[in-house]
Design a protein around this nucleic acid. Sequence first.
DNA 1: GTCTTAACAATTGTCAGACATTTAAATGTA
DNA 2: TACATTTAAATGTCTGACAATTGTTAAGAC
Lengths: 242, 242
Amino acid sequence: MGKSDQDLSTQIAQVLREAILTGQLMVDERLPSEAELAETHGVSRPTIREALKRLAAQSLIRTKRGAAGGAFVNQLRYEDAYRDQITTSTLLLSMNAIDFETACEARFALERACLPLATQRRTPDHLARMRAEIAAQGQEGLSDEGFCASDVAFHRAMVDAAGNPVLSYQLAGAVEAMQPLMNMITFTARNRSEIITRHQYLTDALEGNDTARAEAEVDLLRDYTIKLGQDVKAQRDERSAG
Amino acid sequence: MGKSDQDLSTQIAQVLREAILTGQLMVDERLPSEAELAETHGVSRPTIREALKRLAAQSLIRTKRGAAGGAFVNQLRYEDAYRDQITTSTLLLSMNAIDFETACEARFALERACLPLATQRRTPDHLARMRAEIAAQGQEGLSDEGFCASDVAFHRAMVDAAGNPVLSYQLAGAVEAMQPLMNMITFTARNRSEIITRHQYLTDALEGNDTARAEAEVDLLRDYTIKLGQDVKAQRDERSAG
DNA sequence: GTCTTAACAATTGTCAGACATTTAAATGTA
DNA sequence: TACATTTAAATGTCTGACAATTGTTAAGAC
């Protein structure tokens, strides 16, 4: 009646993970030492260590050396969760051949969901952050990567304006994971000008508490971005054909 | 000028992770054997193994035993990403004392984002799935947990109706991570009836391609769910005070 | 008595070597 | 050719040891 045919370290990690998820092990509580865990689970210390490394990789525990050291249940922080979500989303997009249009559609649909809240709750600080990024996007000599990075920062500020940390967390993946895809686009001066105009009107709409206008601008931005992606694709196809 | 003050296994895992993320290691490509990695990095095999377990915990690699075995770059699957996202979201909600209202607000805002696409693309199959869950929700003797599970399944079908896998992935976390919070609510017959009515009208709206109506129903559902949460909280406060 | 310093103990981090287990491929045989 | 056997390569696991870190405690200086 063995658990399964998996590694011992996988099984043990699963047991400990359950204990954390169900609250049997509370935040900041100390796990037994590696030697104790080895004894109670009837395995050697390296096996226990491999199990603990698995949990550490998921930010479920942290370890400290020394006398009062050991493995402690980690309070999962938003920053850790953000980071994980972004790398996971990035990998999903790159490894599963998600086309640009699908990713764009999802991104802007999610951002649109923030607008009703953002128009209610945006503070002067949010508006200032957005306008600062707009200014950065208009600067001469800005690289395409720099433009994309500023674009992400602009939208991040917009999402934060909704004042809901859960929304911010969920959208971090969607927005930032798009950046590698966006970086494939070459932005002409005219492209940038069009996008900056949308950003300006969008910021104005938030400032004026005009949800409908903001939604319309996001829709325009989505359509324009998808069109840019299609143009790049068409150019690439043409070049490979000619 | 050492790399940093972190574990060797952490550093090595980071190097390998970068190689995978940047595409230097392609999907299904085989990593060097543990012995080779140990030699090239100048560390022992256990240290290499700990590094590999970290990557395995993030579903970045899979390992196979035997002659042609080894560690291979894993194609990140949606199911794996779902699972990780749900546990992460659940932990975030439980460990960071996110209140019910904030979580609810985020969940329904995100679902609302799917509606324009869902009204365009819903198939008879999606509608059938939704109606099946509505039927399940009306059954006598259904536990509160069962009701919540069916509620999640209903909304999952609705999200899938948008026909965008990226959206489905992003929302899996938001919707399913809410379930533990939802399970804290005790649903009276009248509560259930109200929710089922909303579900029916929502499904009707999708069938009739009426986005505005669907959005209105989601808003009602959000408000009603938040109200239920507030009632539970009020009762609990009253009991502890009395 | 108090402060400083040194020894100590507990714990994680790392290493070396060995053996067990699994699996694909090579080899041998009918 | 088809099937059984051997072999080699790789991961999985164990044992035992030592290094590095850090809190505690005891000793000693003033």
